[in-house]
């Protein structure tokens, strides 16, 4: 047990996710099929894209609620550009740029004006949601080219491009966080901002960049999602960011900052996705699914804080 504890503490979420996978494979009809796996991966793509960079923001000590608003609004900008110019790469670029600018604005508000990041991004969320209604004239926007749907719906080796994009973004975030100077700075800033400052880390710049990247990733996630759905509609729906935060937190990244990893978020996302998949295959009432999902998130966070309190 004493040898098992540290392993469980570090890799607990991965172990649990694999266990859930094996359990579903053994007990559930229809789970073990290529079509089902493909579907799960495709459905998770947007969430993974946004969550991998939201992880970096959270490790840097920030909390970004505006991910949901960017996810909703960036594709509206992209689709407007597409219908105006017919230029799909430009449309994607604009969608990502919208996210990047919202993120950088968040970062500046948080670091320069010292507004708590939860409040700051809540406020910018409302502004961005509002901009979405303005740019779309409160109506559903549909794609007008063949190229835009192809962004997410093309197939390579059986998997959709949405899945491949998500894979690429996860790898980029992972490498950025674990193998670069920026990544080290992110951990230091989130773990102890004053110590980081005295060690010469440009704290404000690191946090601003982290917010900017999270915004850009959320923009890309929105574009991919609208490409899958062939349309985008303005709303003020915060639910996407809750999914993102759930994945990050269930993975074991600390809300207090300074600790966490991109692989954790991937594991957390798949844990939740497999759970939902299992429920659906067993035809569990979606209302009950929510109740259980909430309980699981609560449990994950409770276990995390319990293990952190145990002596080394």
């Amino acid at each position: 047990m004493s040898r098992l504890m540290p392993v469980m503490r570090r890799y607990g979420i991965a172990v649990v996710t694999v266990a859930l996978f094996c359990f579903l494979a053994a007990t559930t009809d229809g789970f073990w099929s290529q079509a089902n796996f493909r579907n799960v991966l495709d459905q998770q793509s947007a969430l993974l894209i946004a969550a991998s960079f939201a992880t970096i923001t959270m490790i840097a000590g920030g909390f970004d609620l505006s991910v949901a608003s960017v996810y909703v609004v960036a594709p509206l900008f992209a689709l407007q550009v597409e219908s105006a110019t017919g230029n799909v790469p430009l449309a994607v670029l604009v969608g990502v740029a919208v996210g990047l600018s919202v993120g950088l604005a968040n970062g500046i508000v948080v670091t320069v004006m010292k507004v708590n990041s939860f409040i700051a991004t809540l406020a910018t969320s409302f502004m961005v949601f509002g901009a979405g209604f303005l740019i779309s004239d409160r109506s559903v926007l549909r794609t007008s080219t063949d190229a835009y749907p192809a962004i997410a719906r093309t197939r390579f080796w059986g998997l959709t491009t949405a899945t491949w994009i998500a894979f690429a973004v996860v790898v980029v975030a992972w490498v950025l966080l674990s193998r670069t100077r920026f990544g080290r700075h992110v951990y230091a800033v989130g773990g102890n901002a004053e110590a980081a400052r005295l060690a010469g880390v440009p704290v404000a710049r690191v946090q601003t960049i982290a917010f900017g990247l999270a915004g850009a990733a959320a923009g890309l996630a929105g574009v991919v999602s609208s490409s899958r759905a062939l349309s985008a509609l303005p709303s003020d729906d915060f639910s996407f960011v809750f999914g993102v935060i759930a994945a990050v937190v269930v993975g074991g990244t600390s809300i207090a900052g300074g600790e966490g990893a991109v692989w954790r978020t991937v594991a957390g996302a798949f844990f939740i996705a497999l759970m939902v998949n299992g429920f659906n295959l067993h035809q569990v009432d979606p209302i009950w699914q929510r109740v259980i999902q909430g309980g699981v998130i609560l449990g994950a966070v409770a276990i995390d804080s319990w293990t952190q309190r145990r002596p080394q």
Partner: peptide, 19 residues
Amino acid sequence: HQGLVAGRSVRDNITLPHL
């Protein structure tokens, strides 16, 4: 409060200003 980043490794703490 001003020196170490708790939770990070000894190595990360030493090399932080010299990355």
